[in-house]
């Protein structure tokens, strides 16, 4: 990926993070999401994947962290 941001269009009015995970893996294999153990943050908060996301939510893919 050249950019830090990816803008995607989803036709459903509502989608869960679980569905989004599947969608991203299928449509963007170059992200390598099958190989990493990541979680989602929505609007800067780590979220359970049963949660639905709304238009304009900021969704981040958080791979294992290593700060410090």
């Amino acid at each position: 990926m050249e950019s830090d941001n990816l803008l995607i269009s989803i036709h459903d009015t509502s989608i869960s993070l679980k569905e989004l995970r599947k969608y991203l893996k299928e449509l963007y294999p170059s992200l390598g999401l099958n190989e990493i153990n990541f979680v989602f943050a929505v609007n800067k908060v780590i979220c359970n994947e049963d949660m639905n996301v709304k238009p304009l939510d900021e969704i981040a893919i958080i791979p294992p962290i290593s700060g410090g």
Binding site: N37, V39, A60, I62, P63, P64, I65, S66, G67, G68
Partner: peptide, 27 residues
């Protein structure tokens, strides 16, 4: 900070640059 902050590190060595395998972020 180490358990909860989304921060990542990539080490530079004579063999190149490598992302460090971290830990799953703690909610």
């Amino acid at each position: 900070i180490k358990k909860r902050c989304p921060i990542w590190k990539k080490e530079k060595t004579q063999f190149g640059n490598e992302w460090i395998e971290g830990v799953k972020i703690n909610e």
